[in-house]
Design a protein around this nucleic acid. Structure first.
Length: 916
RNA sequence: GGGCGGAUAGCUCAGUUGGGAGAGCGCUGCCCUUACAAGGCAGAGGUCACAGGUUCGAUCCCUGUUCCGCCUACCA
């Protein structure tokens, strides 16, 4: 064939866009559920529809693509199902900002119009991340793209909600929940991030009712909540206070008195003053304590404005006049200062100390959350968690790395009911309706015109709006205004995307999916809930393996964030260094249990790797003209047999590592093979054959070269899809695209211990020659003469296979001589396995440097041999150590002795030269 | 507070049944050798955090200490 011209450097931009398009157009990624081969399926963790590809996605998606491409090439019936998440709060925020910029507001548009705006936004901007995913080369079946709010998935959400409600696993209740004052919605427990902050511990005097000159000291970090106090608790066995239980204290700033109760759960005698105020409507512990003691719950905060509310304060707390007029309308922060001031005016504030505490913040907007009493929808999680625990315990789901199993189990065993209602507009509206007539007419919120629904009104839960109220027959039904937590629909993802509740062929073929690839951050948000829902509604786990990869951090190990400015933008990197380089970098750094610290220099290094591969192919093309012949292995040259043996080893290792999700090891092995074995040694070894067009080994070697190249392209393809496809197309091959070729399989006939042994002789000897050249200041271009003496006539054949390569790579010519004719000017005598190679020395030599160096090596060798002898001489070692260990040590000692004599003889010769 | 993980070369890390301490990047020297200077060759650099223990022998196993991460948690 005619030689093929490649550019001198690899230009990813010229290649990537073409192939990512071509692959999709030709339908290579399309799944065929009817295909008889063993299925392999992955559902992608759906990125937020508002998102753009960040480096965390790039890692997550690259690993999945490696698995999918690898399995596809192995002939499995693969499906990688893509999609996006409607991301309730995040998306609503984005569109709301847009609306505000136009001078309108969410409220002024009204719910229906606003949601219409979100859909419009999604139609125009929602595809950003999908396009970027295609750019990354992700081999998803794009025809099956799903969205958590599309029709099929919404149907699944309704089905699940109604069924759980009917089974009593979804309920409505008035509970304390986490409230984000900025997003104006309830959050689930895990949507709250805890952060250690320095706060203040206030100690307040609560006067005793029977004798106001005496008081109880009460400690709190949030003095503003004191207006909602309904009791003070002390430890029942605390001798300081237990006589006070049952008596009352006067709540400062108010005219109310509250009881003193004994509570051993809430109170830690050692902490603070040993007396705790109880505010059931604003603290989780206090809520529970309130239930134990049947305390009333006084709410002081307006849920929608997050301000102290006049009506609630005034009605419930009976405040003294200065407080009653000073507080309403203040935020909790301002109220805290005001309360502090009012208390000290009354001499009720004893001390203020600094205090370390954990503050809960909204995971979306980092606003401090407020425990708030309100009516919400919950999933009763216990009955769902139990089978999900069992599935992991009995190994039906494997978590990798295993160290996360305990984390998962611990969390699941202590799981709390899941608050699923959100007071926002964008999302799956809760399929519950209320009868206006039964309710006696709805109240509307002053702030946003929401219906204010009473807990006493029983909801009608159904998949669609009922015609009329089953109680009274009225048609005036109002739907619950809340929407479901975004993670509710994501929890159904593995089966809702495959067509559930319909029994589709996709569901039958691809569920359970093979593996879920995810970061640790959504183990509880998402993974645990998918397991629960999958088991509940499919009766089967949603995936066999859960592979948890690390978080990507910056080079200093810090979390990447826009505000810190340390974000590495994958699109920038792809543009600068190529997509393959980014993918390979991420794969090579994906060690389990450790975060990925990404620095741009690493990516540059793998850009160079891509270029190295490119140039290896370019080199091959220069010499591929001429006949090729496939010889039996035994008739191939030493370098050919050696590289095939190494390739076989590499194929085996890569496959084993991929099977255990060790992307880091798989990619390192590939790197090592391509660069340091194939390029550094093999290509150098075969140059004499290729560069002489008449060389008798030419046809065989050209054939091996093509074979190695073609195989390594397939081997590398899951990691570096673009460059491998591009190069594969240029070398002799069968088929249309590398995407659908078979993945290389272990070929035992290629393994050759003999060839590897011969190569190691070549390598060792060449290394000695090279070291000698540097030692002697011999320029690389200068040819030298190798005098080869035959010490042992049985080694002639060995010499014939090794010496020509040594001479080629050591840049010299060979002369066979008798042992007795050894040149007098020889400096180094290199010994390996009975071969003797002398380098003829003439010209300037830096003798002093050479002597220093040999001295140093000598002392190291002596130290080492002493150490080893010490071990060997130990009687217990000989009696206890396994025989192979002893043999190994003997071999090592023998080898050392050989080097030892070599160095001594060289040194003697040096000294005699110095003496001249 | 509880749990998990980490500490190995200047940096980032690998080191899987306890027996020779490794890679990449960076650094130094030489080389623009007809695939590649985004390259080649050679080299320097480590008390494997600290202290004990088990063992003939410990980077590896055990105990404790220090430091650093992460997860989790309602000490007011």
């Amino acid at each position: 064939m005619a030689s093929f011209q490649l550019d001198k450097t690899y230009d990813p931009k010229a290649v990537e866009a073409r192939w990512s398009q071509e692959w999709i157009t030709r339908g290579y990624f399309r799944a065929s559920p009817e295909h008889p081969s063993q299925p392999y399926s992955i559902v992608i963790p759906p990125p937020n529809v508002t998102g753009s590809l960040h480096v965390g996605h790039a890692l997550n998606h690259s690993l999945q693509d490696i698995l999918i491409r690898w399995r596809r090439m192995q002939g499995r019936n693969t499906l990688w199902l893509p999609g996006t998440d409607h991301a309730g709060i995040a998306t609503q925020n984005v569109v709301e900002k847009q609306v505000l910029a136009e001078g309108a507001s969410r409220e002024s548009l009204g719910r229906e119009q606003f949601i219409e705006r979100v859909w419009q936004w999604k139609a125009t901007s929602g595809n950003t991340i999908v396009n970027q995913q295609k750019q990354l080369g992700e081999s998803c079946d794009w025809d099956r793209l799903r969205f958590t709010m599309d029709e099929g998935l919404s149907k699944a959400v309704l089905e699940v909600f109604v069924r759980l409600y009917e089974e009593g696993l979804i309920y409505r209740g008035e509970r304390l929940i986490n409230w984000c004052p900025r997003c104006l919605t309830a959050l689930s427990d895990i949507e709250v991030e805890h952060e250690d902050v320095k706060g203040q511990l206030y100690t307040i005097r609560y006067p005793l009712e029977e004798d106001p000159s005496q008081y109880l000291l009460v400690a709190t970090t949030r003095p503003e909540t004191m207006l909602g106090d309904t009791a003070v608790a002390v430890h029942p066995e605390d001798p300081r206070y237990n006589r006070l239980i049952g008596k009352r204290v006067l709540l400062p700033l108010t005219t109310r008195t509250i009881p003193i109760v004994g509570d051993s759960i809430l109170v830690d005698r050692e902490f603070g003053t040993g007396a705790v105020k109880i505010t059931p409507a604003h603290d989780f512990n206090d809520f529970e304590a309130g239930e134990r003691h049947q305390l009333s719950r006084i709410r002081i905060l307006d849920i929608h404005a997050n301000l102290l509310n006049e009506s609630e304060l005034g009605l419930a707390t009976r405040m003294i006049p200065q407080a009653a007029t000073a507080l309403p309308g203040l935020s909790t922060q301002k109220a805290r200062l005001k309360i502090e001031q009012l208390l000290s005016n009354q001499d009720a504030l004893a001390t203020v100390e600094s205090h370390k505490m954990a503050l809960g913040k909204c995971y979306r907007c980092k606003t401090v959350v407020e425990p708030y009493l309100s009516i919400q929808w919950f999933v009763k999680i216990g009955p769902l968690a139990e089978p999900a625990i069992k599935a992991v315990e009995d190994g039906r789901i494997r978590i990798i790395p295993e160290s996360w199993v305990n984390n998962y189990l611990g969390w699941m065993r202590d799981i709390k009911d899941w608050c699923i209602s959100r007071q926002i507009w964008w999302g799956h509206q809760i399929p519950a309706w209320y009868c206006e007539r039964c309710h006696g007419g709805f109240l509307r919120s002053k702030h946003d015109n929401r219906p204010l629904i009473d807990l006493d009104v029983p909801p009608i839960v159904a998949k669609s709006k009922p015609e009329k109220c089953p109680q009274c027959g009225s048609g005036n039904l109002v739907q619950d205004p809340d929407v479901l937590d975004t993670w509710f629909s994501s929890a159904l993802w593995p089966f809702s995307t495959l067509g559930w509740p319909d029994q589709t062929i996709e569901l039958k073929t691809y569920y359970p999916t093979s593996v879920l690839v995810t970061g640790l951050d959504i183990l509880f948000f998402w993974v645990a809930r998918m397991i629960m829902m999958g088991l509940k509604f499919m009766g089967e786990v949603p995936f066999r393996d859960v592979y948890i990869h690390a978080l990507v951090r910056d080079a200093e190990g810090k979390k990447m964030s826009k505000s810190k400015g340390n974000v590495i933008d994958p699109l920038h990197v792809m543009n600068e260094y190529g997509t393959d380089a980014l993918r390979f970098t991420l794969a090579s750094m994906a060690s389990p249990g450790r975060d990925v610290k990404l620095a741009e220099e690493r990516i540059e290094g793998y850009r160079n790797f891509a270029n190295k591969i490119w140039n290896a192919a370019r080199f091959a093309h220069m010499y591929l003209d001429g006949p090729r012949v496939t010889l039996p292995i035994s008739q191939r040259t030493v370098p050919d047999r050696w590289i095939l043996s190494r390739l076989n080893h590499t194929i085996k290792t890569v496959t084993v590592e991929l099977e255990s999700y060790r992307f880091d090891r798989a990619s390192n092995v590939l790197y090592q093979f391509m660069w340091h074995e194939f390029c550094d040694w093999y290509l150098e070894l075969i140059k004499p054959v290729l560069q002489n067009s008449d060389h008798p080994d030419g046809p065989g070697t050209r054939n091996t070269l093509v074979q190695i190249l073609e195989t390594t392209m397939r081997l590398l393809h899951p990691f570096m899809p673009f460059i491998t496809e591009e190069l594969w197309q240029t070398i002799p091959h069968d088929g249309h695209s590398i995407v659908s070729q078979a993945y290389p399989m272990e070929e035992p006939s290629w393994a050759s211990r003999e060839a590897e042994h011969l190569f190691s002789l070549i390598e060792q000897t060449v290394n000695l020659v090279r070291t000698g050249r540097v030692l002697l200041n011999y320029p690389p271009a200068q040819q030298i003469t190798f005098y080869v003496a035959h010490e042992d006539s049985t080694k002639h054949d060995l010499l014939g296979q090794v010496i020509p390569h040594v001479a080629h790579l050591g840049r010299g010519t060979v002369e066979n001589i008798e042992r007795s004719a050894w040149p007098t000017q020889q400096l180094l005598r290199l010994v390996a396995e009975g071969l003797s190679v002398g380098i003829n020395v003439s010209g300037e030599v830096d003798l002093q440097k050479a002597v220093d160096r040999l001295d140093k090596q000598l002392s190291e060798v002596e130290k080492e041999s002493q150490r080893l002898s010490g071990k060997l001489n130990h009687a217990d070692f000989v009696s206890k150590a396994p025989p192979e260990v002893i043999a190994d040590h003997k071999d090592r000692l023998r080898a050392l002795a050989q080097d030892h004599s070599m160095l001594i003889s060289s040194e003697q010769q040096l000294q005699s030269m110095l003496g001249q």
